[in-house]
């Protein structure tokens, strides 16, 4: 019965197409994922192309132009130091995006390796590692970050390292759970019965089947990291003052919010759309691939 269903006339063409091509098509069909990834790409493009989009300097003080409202020269007005708000918003994503994506990539990569390995190894190694990771999880991320920044200073590299440290355990949890779901399946058993070593089993059998979990985790984790890093800048421990950064801009301009709402609202909107984009991507991808996200909210 199912033999004839599977080979129904409409499938063969699509069936022989490359798997990557098929997932691409599926991706385009999911509106949520498209909108989300589109927003993220837009932000990446604006951050990369900011110097081409505006000729004004994001950092130079122009005391004469301070605190202007929106106008033809300055579409969104200027801040207390006379800097063009729009220019600063366009440049403002650079710091957050660069640091967040680097940190997320490190955390997800490290977490994936550790998560897969510990799931396959099991036993005492697994128990001990999970205990230690639990202990890291127990410390609030922002506090851990603040401690590290206090001791080591607030350079971008330090922040990337600190965020990696703080978020790796959570990635490990998610990836480990996914890998544990795959590990007892018969095709992994078949590889074990062949006597294959752990690494080839990981690379050939386990990883390809949890790649989608990792992708969703990346999008999800990126949104958390962007929020965390902006919070840090807002508190004055992230980007250093002349740097155009959304978190910093919100913190600098919020006292004058009643007078000059755009100087605060513009970076808020920029930040929120980026995070919405990341969340939509995570949503769309997980729905597309049926990823169980019950471990996510950590």
């Amino acid at each position: 019965m199912s033999e004839s269903n599977r080979n129904s006339p409409s499938t063969p063409n699509r069936a022989t197409a490359h798997p990557a091509g098929r997932s691409m098509r599926a991706l385009l069909r999911s509106r949520t994922a498209c909108v989300g990834l589109g927003l993220v790409l837009l932000h990446l493009a604006v951050a990369a192309l900011a110097p081409l989009l505006t000729s004004a300097s994001p950092t130079a003080n122009v005391p004469d132009d301070a605190l202007l409202g929106p106008g033809s020269d300055h579409w969104l007005g200027t801040d207390a130091l006379g800097r063009d708000v729009l220019t600063r918003v366009l440049y403002g994503g650079q710091y957050a995006l660069a640091v967040s994506f680097a940190a997320t990539a490190c955390a997800v990569a490290l977490g994936t390796v550790l998560g897969c390995a510990t799931a396959l190894k099991g036993g005492r190694t697994d128990g001990a590692l999970m205990r230690v990771l639990d202990a890291v999880l127990a410390i609030p991320p922002i506090l851990a970050l603040l401690v590290v920044v206090t001791v080591l200073g607030a350079g971008p590299l330090v922040i990337v390292l600190a965020v990696t440290l703080v978020y790796t355990p959570q990635v490990v949890r998610v990836v480990r759970a996914a890998a544990l779901g795959v590990a007892p399946l018969d095709y992994v058993t078949a590889a074990r019965a062949r006597g294959e070593r752990t690494l080839p089993i990981l690379l050939r059998e386990v990883l390809p089947n949890i790649v989608h979990v990792v992708a969703v985790e990346f999008a999800m984790r990126a949104s958390w990291v962007v929020l965390l890093i902006s919070s840090l800048s807002f508190l004055g421990f992230g980007a250093d003052p002349p740097t155009p950064d959304w978190g910093l801009m919100i913190s600098e301009n919020r006292t004058a919010m009643v007078v000059l709402p755009w100087a605060t609202l513009a970076p808020i909107i920029a930040l929120a759309t980026l995070v919405v984009g990341l969340n939509l991507s995570a949503d769309g991808l997980s729905r597309l691939w049926n990823v169980d996200r019950s471990e996510e909210a950590s």
């Binding site: 798997p19 399946l185 018969d186 095709y187 058993t189 078949a190 074990r192 019965a193 062949r194 006597g195 050939r204 059998e205 390809p208 089947n209």
Partner: peptide
Amino acid sequence: ARRRPLDVRRRVQLVFQNADTSLNPRR
């Protein structure tokens, strides 16, 4: 299996009950 010599290991092979899970869906 891992402790058996390769040539012994290959001489005993297993076929699984559930064909749905016995093949890696991505290969």
